[in-house]
Each structure stands twice: as C-alpha cells, then as structure tokens.
Design a protein around this nucleic acid. Structure first.
Lengths: 207, 207, 207, 207
DNA sequence: AATGAATGAGAATTCATTCAT
DNA sequence: AATGAATGAATTCTCATTCAT
C-alpha cells in the first residue's frame, strides 16, 4: 500500500486522477438523482451513495448541494458553447440562413441528447438563482449570437425589433426542444426550423 | 345549527363567509409563497402565517401541502376554461383566423395577468404529478381546440401533420407568454401572433 | 477503511464500539421512558435526550419509534429463549416435574428481574401488532415446550386437553409473575409453582 | 321551539333525558373507539363523530379524554359490584365452595361478555393512574371478598397466607378470563374453576 | 484526503381543547 | 346548551452539514 509511493515523481498524478474520477462519479450520480426526483427532493446522501463516495468526500468537492447543481450547469454551458462555436464558425455569415439553422439545430440536438433531461430538471429547481441564470445565460448567449448573425441578413430592421425577433426565435426553439417527455418530440424539433424560417423569411434579405 | 339564520339578513352564513375568506387568504398566501420560493421550499407554516391563519386551520381546509397546490391548479384551470369558452364561442369557425388569434391571445393575456406567475411557479414544482398534469391538461386542451378549429381551415392537411402544427403553435405561444420575468414580455407576447400566422399562413385555406 | 487496524491493538473498531454503546444507551433510555409513560406517550426526543444522543442518531439506528420497541422485544425474546434452553436441557424429561418447574421458574424469575417491568410496559402498548405478537410468541413458545414435556408425563391425556392445560398453566404463571408493582410479588411467584402442581398432579404419571 | 316550554313543570325532564342519551351515545362511541385503537390513539373528535355529537358537547360532559375513560371505568366497577353483590348474597358462606365459584364465575362471565374487550383495552392504557386503579380496585375488591369468604372455610390458615392464596386465585382467574382474543377462550375460562379448586382443596375445611 | 457517524434545526402534520356564535 | 371552526403546542422524522477519527 505504501510500497510504491516513492518510486516515481509522476506518482503525484494518481491522486489528481482519482479525484477527477471521484468528481465525475459525483456529478454523474447527481445528474441521475436530480433527474429522478428534482433538485429540492434530491439528497446529498443519496448522491454520494450512488457515486459510491462518502458524503464527506462529496462535501470536500462541493460545499453544498447547490454547488453541485452549479457545477453541472457550468459544465452544460461550457459544452454548449463549444458546440455552438463549432457550428457558428467563420462562414456562418455567408451560408444560407436555412443551412445555418440546420447546423445550429443539429448542434443543439446533440447537446440535448447528451444532457438529456438534465436541463429540464435543473430548470425546475426553484430558488436557484445561480443556475437558473446559467440557463438564462445560455439562452441569452444564443440570442446574442443569432442577433449578431441577423444584423447582416436583416439590415433594414430596427435593432430593437431585431432583438425581439431573435429572442422570439430562441424562445420558441427552446420550448420545442424541451418536449422530451411528450409524444412527437422529434417532429416538434423539426418544426422549430419551419416555424422560424416562416417567421424570419419576410425580413431576411436573401432567402 | 343554521336556526335563526333568517332573522337578520345581515351576516348571512357567517361561518361560510368567514371560511370562504379564510380559504381565500390561505390560497393567496400560498400563491405568494410558492412564487417566492417554489413549492418544495415553501412551508405550510409560512403560508399559514402569511394568511394570518393558524396552521391548524390550514390543515382543516387542505390535508397537506400538495392539496393547496392542487386547489390552486384546479382553480387556474377552471378560470382558463371559462375564458377560452368565451373566446371560442359559436362564430369561432367563421371569423378570420387572425381575429381568432386576437381573441384567444387576449383571453390568455388576461389569464396570464390574473394568475401572474403562479403557473410558472407551479410548473417548476418537481414531482408534482397531479398538478403538472393540470398544466399539461390545460395545454392539451388548447391544442385540441386549435386542432379542431384548424380542421375546417386546413382541409388538405394530413391529420397527423395538423396535430403537430397545432402543438407547435401552442408550445411556442405558451413559451412566449411565460416570459414574465424577462424584458420585452409584452412585445414577445405580441410576436406570438406574428410567428403563428407566419407559420400557418401557407396551410390556411383563406387567410 | 479498516486498513491499519492491526497496527495497534488498542482502540479496536472504535466506531463499532461507540456505536454499540450508543445503541445500548438508546435502548436503556427507551426502556426507562417506556416504563414510565408507556409506548404511545413516550417521545423519541425524550428517549434521545435521556440517552444523551442526538435525535438524528436515534433515527440512524432505528427508523421509527416502533422499531425501538421491536428491538427491545426481540432482545427480550432472545434472552428468554437462551434462558429456557438452558433450563430445559437434555434431562428435562426425566427429572421430577416439580424440579422442572423449579428450574423454569427460576429462569423466568431471573428474566423477570433482568427485564424488570419492560415486558409489562410493552404489553400495555396498544396497536403494536408486531411486538404484542412477540410477547405472544414468547408465551406460545413456553406453552409449546410445556406441552411437549407433558406428552411424556401425561400419556393418557387427550392432546387437546393437554394443550389447554398447558396453556392454563402458562397463563396463570405469567399473570402471577407480572405482579411486579403489587405487594407480595415474591410470594405470588412462589404460589405459581403450588397452583400449577395442584392443577397438574391429578394427571401426572409419577409425581 | 320555545312554545311549549312553560306548559308543564315536567318539561324540565326532556333536556335531562336528551342529555342522558347524549352521554350514553358518547360513552358507547368511546367504548367502540377505545376498543378499536386503544385509549392513546383514540381521538375525541372521532368519538364525538361516532356519537353524532359535536365535539363541544362532548367537552361539556367530560372535561378531557381521560374523564371519558374514567366514566367508563367507574361504570364498569358499578356494574361489577352489582353482579358480585347478587352472586355473593347471604348464603355465600354456607354453600359448597365449588357452587360459590360457579356463581361468581358465571357473574364474571356475564360481566365479561357485557364489557367485552373494554377492560382489556382500558388495561392497556398507559399512564392512566386513575383508571388503572379502577381496575385494580376491582380486582382488590374481589380479592377482599374472596378472602373474607375463605376466613370461614380455612380457619387454620394464617391470615397472610390466606390473603396470598386469595390473591393468587383472583389473579389467575382474571388472566384466564382475559384471553378473549385467543383460541379456546371458553375452555380456559372453565379451567379457572378447576385450577382454583385444585389449589384450594388442600386448605378447605369441608369440600 | 477520506470516511461516515453525529448533529440538530426545521418541516409536516395531528389533535386536545377553547370559544365565538 | 350546542356547535364546530380555530388554535397551536407537541410530535415524528428528514437531511444538509460538520468533524473526530
């Protein structure tokens, strides 16, 4: 047990790697539990038990229950940003808007599958200012990006009107994507593109 | 028990009127508290305190915390149905679709003002099968009514497609209406009509 | 977790020993409280306070108040069985019946002293199916053992009659033993032997 | 309602008769409830509901829950005394002891049927000093009467010994009578006589 | 760092009892 | 006298968090 400790300097890593794994396990367990019973009803004991980690360890990494949710939220946000960055690379201003939507929606779809239900679960958490705002941050970010992209495509539009239209698009798309539990989830996600195209078409310069 | 009740017109059924008021106070307090902290975090003690009613009285009317939420939900639903019935009276199949939307949205707007935030607060309550489904019931009902109305206006549409389109409209409208806390709430609600009209125009028979 | 346990002999499984003690304290306190006010009236807070243990700890060991009573009951039953096993060893069929009674009664007396009053207190607990049946189990067990022993000593007796006589003996003895609070408790316990001998003498083969 | 009030002086009675009935209903309901769930678990609300009497009325007659039990206890005691008085009339010192036992047991049997289960239910009520002592009073009274009767039948016995023997008899008989829920209840009650006769025979002067 | 036993504030709910009507 | 709505102290039990080991 203590035998190999001094052999290699690299030996410092394992701890960190273990910690890393621990954290992963905790977060994974937390997602599970939050999904099943919601944030308020979830207990840190249950999370630590599922993570096969002692409750003490859990608190070593996260000072309280909310912190776990925040970590999860932050992580979601990071993931999402990466996906968006990829989808909205250089040419995003040139390609037809419909193609852009395709890209973005496919990115969001992927995100939604990866984070299946977590977002919804989190969104239901009352009094979670911090993370609620993470979700809001996320939505706001998409709105901002869309708005920016539309600047070039709808030069005649008043900025305020453009903002509102962008917001409208994102809110609707978000709502249609968040129908996971409902029938026709797939079809509804597809409709997102249709309804947005129909909505924006009149103001889009070309296409 | 109720003897002598007719002697004085004043003070009709004092018990009942008082009880009525009590219940009102409890429900009003519950709305307040649910709004502020969400259902799970809300405490019956806090509710009874705000209602200036003893905790025992609260439990005389509602056997547990969920019952209060259910009462609130049921009440919302009733209100909403009445509003919709009014908005969708006899001529709702003949008038232009846009006019119909105006009516419905103004009804929903009124509802949304009356029940400001409650719905959203309730919707956030995790694991509240009963009332969550009340909200769902409400949405489903609007979808059904819209679908029915669209039958006459979009005779060429496949039923399934029509269903999905109706659902899409309602989901989007709902999402746009539920932005109370955000800036531009009013404008977003107005956009609901625009986006739905743009979306449905291609399939609407006349107008 | 248990690593290094062998390094020092001292401090063996501290957790377990402490826990053990805690449980003991809780049970002891519970006995005290149950005795004083009865099961229903006893409160878990009072028990934990007397045990000088936090209420949370109490619930860590026993999920609810009844569980404490059950633990107490189970323990009694175990104790009693051990005592009986000892008293009714191999030769119990050969020795004179009176000698057998002496043995059994002295075992029961010891038990009664050890568990002073607990049994009575428990027996008074209404609606405690589980433990009431533990007491019943205990009585039934003694009846069974006595019946079995009498088979050899009263071969002419109808089985049903034998069963009833055994039951009669045990019920009477039990009642006489459960007079702890009354004057002459000791004398009454002694009478148990007399009355049973008088009752059985006519049907006993030899002696 | 107020109309006939002044017609006859006798008119005062009805109130009393009604009250009487009310009290009867309350007591009857209380017996039912106590039997079903025991004293502690019984609620005054349940009792008043079953008695079809308002909770306020109940408290008009009995200042608290215990008072109801006490009333029930007192009543039992009265009933019992009457029965005993009848069974132990003048000639009770002359008739053979066995005949006496027959009389007493048949009286007790009747009592036990009339009060089926109430006694047992009451006996289980913890912390009911007052009524527990009613039961004790009852037992003590029987002991005293038996002791007195035995004075003439066992002149050679030491008084203390006689007291203990009387006590033994009563305790055993009581225990055998209180087996209502058990199989063989009838047979066990019959054994009471047998065991007591066997026990006392050696010291009884004649017979 | 890890463990998990221990803590205790706090929540839901009940029910004996009061008192305005 | 009767009624039953109202009261709120008291009880059971939970769970986030701490801390000795």
């Amino acid at each position: 047990m203590r035998a190999n400790t001094h052999i290699l300097e690299v030996r410092k890593f394992p701890q960190q790697i273990r910690s890393q794994r621990r954290v992963e396990k905790i977060l994974a367990a937390a997602i599970e539990v939050f999904r099943e019973v919601g944030f308020e009803t979830a207990t840190t004991n249950e999370i630590s038990a599922r993570a096969e980690v002692s409750i003490g360890s859990l608190y070593q990494f996260y000072p309280n229950k909310s912190a776990i949710l925040n970590a999860l939220g932050a992580r979601c946000l990071t993931d999402l940003r990466a996906l968006l960055d990829q989808a909205l690379s250089e040419d995003s201003l040139e390609i037809p808007f419909e193609a852009l939507l395709d890209r973005v929606f496919s990115a969001l779809h992927m995100f939604s599958i990866q984070n299946d239900g977590l977002f919804a679960a989190i969104a239901k958490s009352p009094t979670l200012g911090e993370f609620i705002s993470a979700e809001q941050q996320f939505i706001d970010e998409i709105i901002r990006r869309l708005e920016f992209n539309l600047e070039h495509r709808t030069p005649n539009l008043e900025p305020k009107k453009r903002h509102i239209m962008a917001k409208t698009c994102v809110i609707c798309a978000h709502a249609l994507f968040e129908t996971r539990q409902s029938e026709h989830h797939g079809a509804l996600m597809l409709e997102a593109k249709t309804i947005i195209m129909a909505y924006l078409e009149p103001v889009l310069q070309n296409r």
